[in-house]
Amino acid sequence: MFRTLVEILRHGLKNRSFIIGGSISLLFFLVAFLSYFWTPYPVEDINIADKLLLPSAEYLLGTDHFGRDILSMLIKGAGNSVIVAFVAIGIGIGCGVPLGLTAAAKKGWMDELIMRFNDFTFAFPSLISAIMITAILGPGSINSIIAIGIFNIPVFARVARGAALSIWKREFILAARSAGKGRFKISVEHILPNISSMLIVQTTIQFALGILAEAGLSYLGLGTQPPMPSWGKMLNEAQTFMNFAPQLAIYPGLAIALTVMGLNLFGDGLRDVLDPKLRRSR
């Protein structure tokens, strides 16, 4: 396991998008991790006297209309995004991958049922369905996690099924069947390890989408609720002061854009590194 990681790193360091994306993602996760222990200022503290300050030594990125430290809010917002995206991805993988594997293993009506249900979920644009779900369940970060998680399920189901179908045709699966293994055992022991690289890449992409979706929901006021800061909500609040304090919108916007770009680049780089065929052709 450790050797595999070292191997991945060794190849990754030759890949530009892996390095850039990886460092941005790493920075993002470190900041998010940090937010649970320390922020420069407590994010709940309202200090009207210091409102809408420009960057200074005291407040590195300035303050918002309540006099809260922007840097602290960004850090806390990163932590919030990670949690939402992480759990939502967990829901997506936890339900989607077994569904996809089952569809590929059973074929026939089971496959049809799962994939048609997938198509049904896919038919709604993800953010719209997330809005619908939070509208039904009520706003809040838990509900936005569920909403984002639900639209992750068909994505993972589809990727898992497609990848699994191509593995099922391979001869070593026939060999595994000739050793007396059932479909379930083969799915877990042979299919899953062979499609894991594809799932990992999909995870990084869905992670970026999850962060984007969380920001979108919070922007609409359906996601994270005050006083917990979130990048989307910061954007929304900044709207009012767009004319005389544009920096308020720039910081969270930049944070979202950078993180999503970093994760996507990392996903791209990881795909190149994990796919031996692409690696060789370079």
């Binding site: 001869e171 070593f172 060999a175 000739s178």
Partner: peptide, 24 residues
């Protein structure tokens, strides 16, 4: 049948290159 395959009847395949799982 699964309890017969591999247990009572074993099988060797033509292509050793593809008949082993590459990631295990």
């Amino acid at each position: 049948i699964c309890s017969i395959r591999g247990n009572r009847i074993g099988m060797i395949f033509q292509e050793p290159m593809t008949a082993l799982n590459p990631v295990k």
